[in-house]
Amino acid sequence: MSTNKIKVGVVGGAGYTGGELLRLLLLHPQVTLVFAHSNSHANQPIYRVHTDLFGDTDLLFTDQVTEAIDVVFLCLGHGDSKVFLQENTFESHVKIIDLSQDFRLKKQENSFVYGLPELNRVQIKNAQCIANPGCFATAIQLALLPLAEQQLLPKSIYVQAVTGSTGAGQGLATTSHFSWRANNTSVYKAFTHQHLEEIGESLTQLQPHTAPAIKFIPERGDFTRGIFASVVLESSLAVDDLQMLYTSYYATHPFTHFSTEGIHLKQVINTNKCLISIEKHQNDVLITSAIDNLLKGASGQAVQNMNLLFGLDEKIGLTLKASAF
């Protein structure tokens, strides 16, 4: 392992994903945090915005970008990353990890590698720019990749997934107010969610000739963080064969684990894990997948990608403890 620490900049550090990223980077043993950029909070201490970091850092937010870094994370709103990179340039050696959806799709014809390590680990290691996957997309793809690799995905797949309120970002809206969200649940963007495109591209990468139709129903949950996805499809494989398939596929991936028992959300909250479980009734298969939307679904996966880019142990800085209760 190199003794030279990775010099890091974070753009958009005041939001939920930016804050989560700062928490990880400040504790990462191979990282020096050079700057945290925020136009709205420039010259304020980071702990003034992310109050849990009081005592951990005295660094101030800045509205300036320095080039004396090795990697920059973009934690900006969708559409803003593309604008930021048009207005700001970095030296050719600086690696870019974008957490928005601006560069995730192949049809956008950009140089970004899609940053799902369980799918593209080799390409990530050799990349210059990484497009971090979406949170729903991560949970759903990890539930399906082993079947796709064996060309076993059926024509139709049904997905119902519920997400915590942090998935909506910090901006206030009717459906993100506590008084609306508490003791409530609702469907949004049924069949049309923006993450469907990146899911489709990844599955087609493994199973190009018979791309499945994914019928996806996203839901808002009455909790702050996490995604629990329930995927239903038909398969003639026995449960034991399915379990072997998933165990084999994820054997070399340190954060995705197959469980022979039922899973629940608290097992993954505050971790970079994805847990997957399977049960079967006749030819109907239920695959459940659980992640923390801010970690494996965003900032944790971004740090995982950084580790791969710089030849570090994939797990370094990400051995986090679940909340449990």
Rank of each mutant, 00 (worst) to 15 (best):
L33A: 05
L53G: 05
T185Q: 13
S165Q: 15
V285H: 03
L142P: 01
G169W: 07
E67C: 09
A290M: 01
L99P: 04
L33V: 15
Y158G: 00
A324I: 13
Q30H: 15
F61M: 10
T3P: 00
V71C: 15
A229C: 08
V49Q: 12
T210Y: 09
L22R: 06
T204S: 08
I291W: 06
N305M: 03
G317C: 11
A143C: 02
F310Y: 10
Y188C: 02
E219N: 02
K315C: 07
L318Q: 09
E197K: 12
G9L: 14
N120C: 05
D58K: 09
A68V: 04
I130N: 08
Q267M: 14
R181W: 09
F258Y: 13
E234S: 07
Q101V: 05
S176L: 09
I291G: 01
A68M: 03
Y114S: 01
L147G: 04
R220W: 11
T271L: 10
G9V: 12
V34E: 15
A290F: 07
I269Q: 12
G115R: 06
F191N: 13
A322S: 15
I6R: 11
H264F: 11
N270V: 00
A229D: 03
P146K: 04
V187G: 02
A229K: 06
E149L: 06
K296S: 14
Q282I: 15
G300M: 13
L147R: 10
Q30A: 13
Q123N: 11
G200H: 10
V231A: 11
I291T: 01
Q301I: 07
L147Q: 07
A173H: 10
D56H: 14
Q282A: 15
H78K: 04
T3S: 10
H193N: 09
L21C: 03
R121M: 12
Q194G: 02
L144I: 12
V122M: 04
K155P: 00
P208F: 02
F216I: 01
V122N: 03
K280A: 04
Q108D: 11
Q128Y: 01
S179Q: 12
D63P: 04
Q243C: 07
H50R: 10
A302P: 00
I69H: 11
G226M: 01
